[in-house]
């Protein structure tokens, strides 16, 4: 396998999957502020998704008085860790490290293998769906304090985890299907578990037909995007070099139009961008798209790189389609 951005990303994704899904079994414990779906419902996980940490600041049996002091310091400490991790790696947490991201990518691979067409969301639909991840973020921030304040039933604890398809699907990788069952304890648990099943079903269909469908709704992506001013990683565009060929938009797993359409300035890291760098990799204009960490240039688009890489990819695609060289 040639060293390309994509091959590096793929290797990173698999390593990250192993670490975050199974790391705990080997003594790896990376804390409770991981900015990706390192799902704590997976027994033996190597770190915990910060969304649970964020919701778990509050919770059952807690009171606002009792939270002062050490618990508050711990919560602020994890927030700081989260901010440092996001500042250091930006949305590579989504594009390169998230185990649930890799899980979704498997469905995309399967779809391609079967030759099924991807359903691209129209700009109008994308605009309509974009706020949902912020609504979900608000939902997971607002409900837990209400549980602590005993306004809501204790089973409203961890409200996002209760409907997160990561909770139902990722534990399957350690042979645990229990979150796919209905929880009949009471009306709240039954509602949440039924909702989780529905969300899981919709997402499974969604991620088969559309790359990274879940990421469109991910509140963690929203949270990382809100922290964008603090991040060191930038996807930047030299608009004076871009001829607008649209390669970047066509390879974007989130179908971001701005990366090609932008004519004004260097910022093309939109709310949906996952920093996967596929756009820069397939860009045929020298230096039009760059991935930068502070002032360090990690990767810049190059015509020669693109020609080599696309030539290899298309040869691979042709081989997969079963007719390499027979033309």
């Amino acid at each position: 396998m040639a060293l390309t951005v994509t091959s590096l990303r793929t290797v990173t994704q698999y390593l990250s999957f192993i670490v975050f899904m199974y790391g705990g079994r080997f003594g790896v414990k990376l804390g409770s502020a991981i900015p990706c779906f390192a799902c704590p419902y997976v027994r033996g996980c190597g770190g915990q998704c910060y969304l649970m940490g964020l919701q778990g600041v509050f919770g059952v049996g807690m009171s606002f008085e009792a939270m002062r002091g050490a618990p508050l310091a711990a919560a602020l400490g994890w927030l700081l860790v989260f901010i440092i991790l996001v500042a250091a790696l930006g949305k590579t947490w989504c594009g390169w490290l998230c185990p649930f991201g890799l899980f979704q990518d498997w469905f995309s691979l399967l779809r391609r293998k079967l030759g099924v067409r991807e359903r691209i969301l129209t700009e109008k639909t994308k605009r309509a769906l974009a706020p949902i991840k912020y609504i979900l973020l608000a939902y997971l921030l607002v409900l837990p304090p209400l549980v602590t304040a005993k306004i809501l039933h204790q089973d409203f604890n961890l409200p996002f985890c209760n409907i997160c398809p990561g909770k139902s699907l990722l534990p399957l990788f350690e042979g645990n299907p229990q979150y796919l069952a209905l929880n009949l304890s009471n009306a709240v648990t039954l509602t949440f578990s039924a909702l989780l099943l529905i969300v899981t079903g919709v997402m499974l269909i969604g991620i088969f037909f559309k790359d990274r469908f879940f990421c469109v709704f991910c509140p963690l992506l929203a949270l990382i995007h809100l922290a964008k001013p603090l991040t060191f990683l930038r996807l930047s565009k030299n608009v004076d070099v871009c001829t607008g060929c649209g390669n970047c938009r066509r390879v974007c797993i989130m179908d971001i139009a701005e990366v090609s359409a932008e004519r004004g300035g260097p910022d093309v890291q939109t709310g949906e961008c996952l920093d996967c760098a596929r756009c820069a990799e397939s860009c045929t204009a020298n230096g039009a798209l760059s991935l930068k960490w502070l002032r360090f240039n990690l990767f810049s688009s190059s015509r020669l790189y693109a020609s080599r890489n696309l030539s290899r990819n298309t040869a691979g695609a042709s081989k997969n389609a079963g007719s390499a060289g027979k033309s």
């Binding site: 649209g246 397939s282 696309l310 990819n313 695609a317």
Partner: peptide, 23 residues
């Protein structure tokens, strides 16, 4: 500069059309 990773028939034609037009 054609990216043919998108391997359904429709997508491949769409990728070709896009590259030959916008590019």
């Amino acid at each position: 500069g054609i990216n043919a990773e998108a391997s359904s028939e429709y997508e491949m034609v769409a990728v070709l059309a896009g590259r030959y037009h916008e590019g």
